[in-house]
């Protein structure tokens, strides 16, 4: 094994207990993290638990001999996604409870739970009964790069998957547009609201509110005529 072979362990030794132990540890951590995300009542705890999940998945990727994916996992998920979540949760303060209403009727919840359990049983049964493909021998790529190494990934990414590489940039542009548009709308209204809250009497507040409404209408502009 070429990647990660620099370390002192050799993962290819059959029956090496250290790998079984590591797998058990990280699998347990990943499941624990995922369960905490779903069960915690505080979104802050959920987001932190997700970190456990992400980091243990990164470790599992490393054990599968895929160093570059593992590093990306840590950088992108733990470094960016979780931080973004924590930032938004802190920013929203006590307004974290926003009903998402994915399942509308409460009466449907037991069925949703049953459905999910059925899904888990089915998937695990599929994995157990499936004939897994034989483990292929690891070879260096044609250019001589090791399995899972950044060079080999780059070769595939900019070779076969160059279209996906290019289109990903467009997806990121769309996400940036979305973030800015939605964030700016919220921000502009928030500022107006703060001005509103700073005034003291209810009468003042009402007058200011009305003038704000007028200003908003005039900003909205031509449509009203």
């Amino acid at each position: 094994m070429t990647t990660f072979a620099a370390s002192s362990w050799n993962f290819d030794v059959p029956g090496a207990p250290v790998e079984v132990l590591l797998f058990a540890l990280f699998a347990a951590l990943a499941i624990f993290g995922a369960l905490r995300v779903v069960t915690a009542s505080d979104p802050f705890v959920s987001a932190l638990s997700l970190l456990f999940n992400f980091v243990s998945l990164g470790a599992l990727y490393l054990m599968l001999g895929q160093a570059f994916v593992a590093i990306s996992q840590i950088l992108v998920y733990a470094g960016a996604v979780v931080v973004l979540f924590l930032f938004v949760i802190a920013y929203l303060g006590d307004r974290r409870e926003l009903a998402a209403d994915a399942v509308r009727a409460r009466a449907l919840r037991p069925f949703a739970l049953l459905g999910v359990l059925a899904l888990m049983v089915t998937l695990v049964a599929v994995v157990i009964t499936a004939d897994f493909p034989k483990l292929a021998e690891l070879h260096d790529t044609a250019a001589g790069f090791g399995f899972g190494s950044p060079q080999a990934i780059g070769e595939t990414f900019l070779g076969t998957y160059v279209l996906a590489f290019e289109v990903t940039s467009l997806v990121l542009l769309v996400a940036a547009i979305g973030g800015i548009v939605l964030g700016l709308t919220g921000r502009a209204r928030h500022d107006r609201l703060r001005k509103l809250m700073q005034t003291r009497s209810a009468d003042q507040q009402k007058r200011l509110h009305e003038s704000e409404e007028r200003k908003l209408k005039s900003e909205r502009g031509v449509g009203t005529t």
Partner: peptide, 24 residues
Amino acid sequence: FVTLFIGLELFSIALYVMCALDAE
């Protein structure tokens, strides 16, 4: 499946934002 997924996500993400664009 890579192109399928990325094309699907490209238009889906754009549509999420377009749905929410009437943000008032």
